[in-house]
């Protein structure tokens, strides 16, 4: 993927939590329709990259362009309205809202969103539990809800931060199928993952992140050669 055809381009991104400098010149590109993962150990800066793309890092510098528009100075709600949706690691389910309210909370921001019916058809369990408080769901259900609610907003670019974390293998498998199907219906996805095997099922490319910057890029085709390198990076 080259910079000029990318849907999202991050160049020389720096970000800070208070005094602590966590991103050191992150550069990456995601093309339209791609699924790209960020691999790396805990604390490498993967989640921070997502938060910075979303505008949630108060102190950041460098360049982030989405569909050729610079977003580094924009507040989160303006970035979201360009068609980017974010599903954080902690899932962000609201306890004071029931499942249905959680599902319908995000405003529709793009043309041609998935209808509520279609989303509910993808996640039937959420219909059954629609009147439960959001945080009374199981971890897997909460993850489904967190993904479901950003699908009906019309956003075309999804930031998914470790969706498989802490979930049972059977749920992880379902999630993999869902993400693969999202890809076929045209979503572009940037995915943070520690579970490399999960990601390798559907990702086009992988970036390896260390110390707040990209240290390696591995195409899906190179996986055989790449897995040795990845093992070294992740230390698994």
């Amino acid at each position: 993927m080259t910079a000029d055809t990318a849907m999202l381009s991050v160049r020389d991104l720096h970000a800070w939590y208070g005094e602590s400098h966590v991103l050191h010149g992150m550069t990456l590109h995601v093309g339209r329709g791609e699924v790209v993962t960020l691999l790396g150990r805990n604390g490498a800066g993967k989640s921070t990259t997502m938060r910075a793309i979303m505008g949630l890092m108060k102190k950041r510098s460098g360049s982030i362009t989405y569909e050729e528009r610079e977003t580094i100075t924009l507040p989160p709600h303006r970035i979201a309205r360009m068609g980017i949706a974010y599903c954080p690691e902690h899932r962000g389910i609201f306890s004071r809202l029931d499942v249905q309210e959680n599902l319908e909370l995000p405003p529709v921001i793009g043309a041609d969103p998935l209808t509520l019916d279609r989303v509910q058809a993808m996640f039937p369990r959420l219909v059954e539990r629609r009147h439960s408080p959001g945080t009374k769901l199981s971890g897997g259900e909460q993850q489904m809800l967190a993904i479901a609610r950003i699908l009906r907003t019309g956003a075309r670019f999804l930031l998914l931060d470790e969706p498989t974390e802490g979930l049972a293998p059977i749920i992880v498998k379902q999630l993999g199928e869902i993400i693969a199907s999202l890809r076929t219906i045209g979503f572009t996805i940037l995915l943070v993952e520690q579970n490399f095997r999960f990601a390798s099922g559907f990702a086009d490319r992988h970036y390896v992140v260390e110390h707040g910057r990209v240290v390696d890029e591995i195409a899906a085709g190179d996986l055989a050669a790449g897995s040795e390198r990845i093992r070294a990076y992740l230390g698994v």
Binding site: M54, L56, P76, H77, A85, P88, R96, L105, P106, T153
Partner: peptide, 14 residues
């Protein structure tokens, strides 16, 4: 209600 819990998240929804 949602923003009282996590305003950043709601802002990230637009």
């Amino acid at each position: 209600r949602a923003a009282s819990e996590d305003a950043d998240m709601v802002q990230a929804f637009g």
